[in-house]
């Protein structure tokens, strides 16, 4: 004895029910997504992620470990930001070099908040940044505010 065959739409609908039941999306996924909007500021210019050494592995198994150094590049117009991230347990050490503009200030921003970074020429370092999402905010002598793309580090 077999039930009549369900059509594609019915089968997909049932699959939807099964997925909702077995793999429900936690409510905080939506809550967190909504809350991200607070991070947006209209006067900022995005320096886009253009290169990430964590992705230059051509599909080979990534080898990771303590002290790994990751190089990430961001660009907007003539401005380039080279960010070096060193992994140390649950914290990250950052070295950044900015070319193509002169800075008066810089901050590193994480989900925990912002931290001012002392600038020496176009190079700056910051230690003990908590692992997770981060980005740099750069303030130029010309009064522009640049932010890099968020990266998970």
């Amino acid at each position: 004895m077999s039930a009549p065959r369900e059509n594609d739409e019915a089968l997909l609908a049932r699959l939807g029910t099964v997925l909702d039941e077995l793999d429900p999306m936690p409510a905080e996924v939506v809550t967190e997504g909504r809350a991200l909007f607070g991070l947006r500021r209209l006067d900022e210019e995005l320096a886009e992620l253009v290169r990430d050494s964590a992705e230059d592995r051509s599909g080979l198994l990534a080898v990771r470990g303590e002290g790994d150094v990751r190089l990430i590049s961001f660009e907007t117009g003539p401005v380039t930001v080279e960010l070096q991230v060193t992994e140390r347990g649950m914290v990250r050490d950052l070295v950044a070099q900015v070319t193509g503009t002169a800075l008066v200030g810089a901050e590193v921003e994480t989900s925990a908040g912002r931290q001012d970074i002392p600038i020496e020429d176009s190079l700056f370092t910051v230690e003990d940044v908590p692992a997770g999402f981060l980005r740099l905010r750069l303030h130029t002598v010309a009064g522009r505010h640049l932010v890099t793309s968020w990266v998970r580090a």
Binding site: L36, L39, R40, L46, E48, S149, W150
Partner: peptide
Amino acid sequence: VQTTWLRLLEHL
């Protein structure tokens, strides 16, 4: 999911 939303936020 959150990274994807951040990317959209950057590119709105």
